[in-house]
Design a protein around this nucleic acid. Structure first.
Length: 282
DNA sequence: TACCTTGTTGGAGC
DNA sequence: CGCTCCAACAAGGT
């Protein structure tokens, strides 16, 4: 379940591995996940060089020496890895991008970027470079969780006028981009806010703490290479370190590190939700 | 076998 | 109309 820290870690890895390489072939055994079509992708990107990889919220964005951008969302279990050619595809491999170093005469592929996804929930979309900002505006993706982008007064203004429960609201990606089910539980625990608190009932003090905690936890998790719970690995096949730092996610029945009360798991808006009933009261 | 997992969306319902 | 909530969906592991 890659959230912002995991997606950012994948981005950093892939940037080291494939920037400057030329796409010589694209194949897919599950073209349905390419929402804008496999043929279009092949037509526009074959023989193009990958010039950069960026990220917006949980979306990865591949850039080329062509006016197109490839937007990749990993959803639950999407993964990238690089392989030498001639390797047998694994069961859940869906897209194969053959890459050649963009130097010399060789069109001989050096390595293959493989996209694998057990659940097949991830998506690829090819869009014009000029349509990128429109794409995220239409999806109402909120600011990046950084001190520069994430404006506290705007955040407070939205919360003050909403009857939504805070956890599902934070998961919408509209208040701030990048939180998923793991980090939203961790953030609310650290800020001592009950996940079912009605947004407009949060105090100014709580909102301030929540704002700072979102930035802090996502930054910390990114620095640690994300959390490998379930099956997440980065593009080098390496696990993250943040799972060791989690306080409530997946800790049902264990003691709260603050007060020794047992961590509970409830359902909030259909999502498994971990919290300490003693530290996080409505 | 039915249920659970998650992010996102469309539409039901108030 | 505006807002909130929830089922549905993608597919397979347990």
């Amino acid at each position: 379940m890659p959230e912002l820290p995991e997606v950012e870690t994948v981005r950093r890895g892939l940037s080291q591995q494939i920037i400057g390489q030329k796409i010589v072939k694209i194949e897919s055994s599950y073209p349905r996940m390419i929402l804008t079509g496999l043929t279009e992708l092949q037509e526009q990107l074959t023989n193009k060089v990958i010039t950069g990889i960026s990220r917006r919220g949980k979306y990865l964005i591949f850039e080329f020496d062509a006016p197109y951008r490839l937007i990749s969302h990993l959803r639950m279990e999407g993964k990238y890895r690089l392989e030498k050619g001639g390797t047998q595809p694994l069961k859940h491999d869906h897209i194969f991008v053959s890459l050649a170093s963009n130097q010399g005469s060789g069109e001989h592929p050096d390595q293959i970027l493989v996209y694998a996804d057990v659940r097949k929930f991830g998506t690829w979309e090819l869009i014009g470079a000029d349509a990128l900002s429109t794409y995220f505006k239409q999806k109402k993706i909120g600011p990046e969780p950084t001190p520069m982008d994430f404006d506290e007064s705007l955040f407070a203004e939205k919360l003050n006028h909403s009857a939504k429960k805070i956890k599902p609201y934070l998961l919408e990606q509209t208040l701030v981009a990048g939180l998923g089910n793991i980090y939203v539980d961790e953030v609310l625990f650290q800020a001592k806010i009950h996940p079912e608190t009605i947004s407009s009932e949060l105090t100014t003090k709580q909102i301030h703490l929540l704002h700072d905690t979102i930035i802090e936890i996502l930054q910390k998790a990114t620095n640690l290479g994300g959390s490998s719970i379930r099956t997440y690995k980065n593009s080098f096949g390496k696990q993250g370190e943040m799972q060791k730092e989690l306080k409530v996610y997946g800790k049902k029945g264990e003691k709260c590190p603050n007060c020794n009360h047992l961590i509970e798991k409830i359902k909030v808006a259909g999502r498994g939700t971990h919290y300490c009933p003693n530290c996080q009261k409505i």
